[in-house]
Computed example of a mutant assay.
Amino acid sequence: MSRGSKTRASDAEDICAITRTLAVLSDRWSFLILRDVFLGVSKFGEFRTSLGIASDVLSARLATLVEFGVLEKVPYHEPGQRGRFAYQLTPAGQELKIVLGALQQWGDEHVPHSENPSVARLARGSRHPLRVTFVDDRGNPVEHDDAEFVPTASYPKDAVIDQRPRPASPMA
């Protein structure tokens, strides 16, 4: 096992959900593979062509996404060819749509391209544009300034946390 995979394995056991998630979605290729899956790409050769990624890197990223239950391998057979596998999202993988939507939204707003967004986030039925936002447990939108990350009892006692009071939201 390489040093990188040992680190990834230990990160997958970390108490921090962000560290554990990054053990699975470890680099840009993982996010770009997911983007392509959401756009309908499913076969190894299609990923390689779309992304211009080396076969060994693609194999490793797909294996990690399968190992952690983000993608599943589905056998298929084209006439005259040997059996192969396509990749499709699991329910856990489908939940990453909001993460990719948030990344895209941030990029569209803070690192815009001169030719406008290349993909639109639309509601399937109405075709209305979508925004990614925080929502409370009653379904009410919450402004970013009013959302906070609060350590729980599980947070490591020796971690350094800024305990200073946060200023109230200017809209409050």
Results as ranks from 00 to 15, higher is better:
Arg124Thr: 07
Lys73Phe: 01
Ile33Lys: 04
Glu148Arg: 13
Asp11Arg: 10
Glu78Tyr: 01
Asp136Phe: 04
Glu109Tyr: 08
Ala159Gly: 00
His128Arg: 13
Arg131Asp: 14
Ser126Phe: 09
Val142Gln: 07
Val70Thr: 12
Leu65Phe: 07
Leu65Val: 02
Ser169Glu: 09
Glu115Leu: 13
Ala102Asp: 10
Ala172Gln: 10
Val150Asp: 07
Glu148Pro: 00
Val135Met: 13
Thr49Glu: 14
Arg121Met: 15
Val70Cys: 06
Asp108Val: 14
Gln88Pro: 00
Ser30Met: 03
Val111Gly: 05
Gln81Gly: 01
Thr133Val: 11
Arg166Cys: 01
Arg164Ile: 02
Gly4Tyr: 08
Glu46Gly: 02
Phe47Pro: 01
Thr49Gln: 13
Leu39Pro: 00
Trp106Ala: 13
Thr90Pro: 11
Leu130Tyr: 06
Leu58Glu: 07
Ala123Gln: 07
Arg61Trp: 00
Arg164Glu: 08
His110Gly: 05
Arg164Lys: 08
Ser26His: 06
Phe47Asp: 00
Gln105Gly: 10
Leu62Phe: 05
Ala23Ile: 06
Lys6Gln: 13
Ala60Val: 05
Gly40Trp: 08
Glu46Asp: 08
Phe38Gln: 05
Ser50Pro: 01
Leu89Trp: 02
Ala168Gln: 12
Arg127Ser: 14
Pro129Val: 09
Asp56Ser: 14
Gly69Ser: 06
Asp146Tyr: 02
Gly107Leu: 15
Cys16Lys: 01
Pro79Asp: 10
Ile161Arg: 00
Gln104Cys: 05
Thr7Ala: 13
Gly45Val: 05
Asp162Ile: 03
Glu78Ile: 02
Gly4Val: 12
Ile53Ser: 07
Ala153Gln: 07
Gly107Lys: 14
Ala147Phe: 15
Glu46Met: 03
Thr19Arg: 07
Pro129Lys: 12
Ser5Phe: 07
Asp146Ala: 07
Asp14Met: 03
His144Val: 05
Ser50Tyr: 01
Thr64Ile: 14
Gly125His: 14
Thr21Gly: 11
Gly52Asp: 11
Leu103His: 07
Arg48Ser: 08
Leu62Val: 01
Ala153Glu: 05
Val111Trp: 13
Arg138Gln: 15
Pro75Trp: 03
Lys6Phe: 08
Gln81Asn: 03
Ser10Asp: 02
Phe149Gln: 04
Ala86Tyr: 03
Ala54Pro: 00
Thr7Asp: 11
Ala168Val: 13
Ser26Tyr: 02
Trp106Gly: 01
Thr7Lys: 11
Phe38Ala: 06
Arg138Leu: 15
Ser50Ala: 14
Arg127Tyr: 10
Val150Ser: 12
His128Val: 05
Thr19Lys: 06
Cys16Met: 03
Ser50Asp: 04
Tyr155Ile: 00
Ala9Tyr: 12
Lys73Asn: 08
Asp145Phe: 10
His113Leu: 15
Pro165Ala: 03
Val111Arg: 14
Pro141Leu: 10
Val150Tyr: 08
Ser2Met: 12
Ala147Gln: 11
Ile33Trp: 00
Glu78Asp: 06
Leu103Tyr: 10
Arg8Thr: 05
Ile33Met: 12
Ile98Gly: 03
Ala120Asp: 14
Asn140Ile: 12
Thr90Leu: 12
Ser2Val: 13
Gly139Glu: 15
Pro75Arg: 06
Asp56His: 12
Trp106Glu: 12
Asp27Asn: 13
His77Ala: 04
Ala17Trp: 01
Pro141Ala: 11
Leu130Met: 15
